[in-house]
């Protein structure tokens, strides 16, 4: 960067810029704690279903698209890596690298959503959408329907989080390109990163619960 780094003055309620940055990050962590409970309720429902009807859930799990699910896990883990790398670039005031890495992260998020959409399409053609288009001949049909209800709820709400994350990252990329951040001020990038990593962690737990259940069975 050619222009001299702008050291931001903290807002009046903060003693220092460091305190302001720590407060922003703390706020995001408090929000993420509420998000844990948001997903927790649905995961509790899943736990109950799986404990009560293990055979039906195992059969339902074998209907899920393991290749798309695994590739999507790979995509999201990689996007977390590029996001962490972007925060590192911001720390060192490397504007070009920051802009590019944020763009790559947003692109990987879009790739995830695209694959997810293709997966939903396949499930629609296979009559696996409860309430709208569901047909199953198995003796476990009702459990499979409940499993897919939770599947669409969990992946749908996770997908909304991914969409919000992509939006935030895109805004950060534009701001980075315009030179809004430097090595003294990059809190928005860092906080966006925390949100993105959380969305990744949710998927880390959804992956085995949705795609790997029942794989060792018949």
């Amino acid at each position: 960067m050619s222009d001299a780094p702008v050291i931001p003055r903290p807002e009046p309620q903060y003693a220092t810029a460091e305190q302001q940055a720590e407060t922003a990050s703390f706020g995001m962590w408090v929000f993420l704690a509420t998000e844990v409970l948001f997903f927790g309720g649905m995961l509790l429902a899943y736990t109950w279903l799986r404990a009560t009807y293990p055979d039906g859930v195992a059969e339902a799990g074998r209907h899920t698209k393991i290749v798309i699910g695994s590739v999507n896990t790979l995509v999201l883990l990689t996007s977390s890596f590029t996001m962490a790398w972007a925060v590192h670039a911001a720390e060192h005031g490397r504007r070009k690298a920051l802009t590019r890495l944020l763009a790559v992260t947003a692109f990987l998020g879009l790739l995830f959503l695209g694959l997810k959409g293709y997966e939903y399409h396949k499930e629609w053609t296979e009559h696996l959408v409860p309430g709208l288009n569901f047909h199953e001949d198995s003796v476990h049909a009702q459990t499979i329907e409940l499993f897919y209800f939770l599947y669409f709820l969990l992946t749908g709400i996770h997908g909304i989080h991914v969409t919000i994350g992509i939006g935030l990252i895109a805004v950060m990329a534009v701001r980075a390109r315009r030179g809004a951040f430097n090595s003294h001020y990059y809190t928005p990038v860092e906080v966006t990163g925390l949100y993105w990593h959380f969305v990744d962690i949710v998927w880390i737990f959804l992956y085995p619960l949705i795609y790997l259940v029942g794989r060792s069975g018949p």
């Binding site: 993420l32 704690a33 998000e35 844990v36 409970l37 927790g40 309720g41 509790l44």
Partner: peptide
């Protein structure tokens, strides 16, 4: 502490 609180309340829920 905020991160731990999230997990703590999740444990209470379960």
């Amino acid at each position: 502490a905020a991160a731990a609180a999230g997990l703590f309340w999740l444990a209470i829920l379960f």
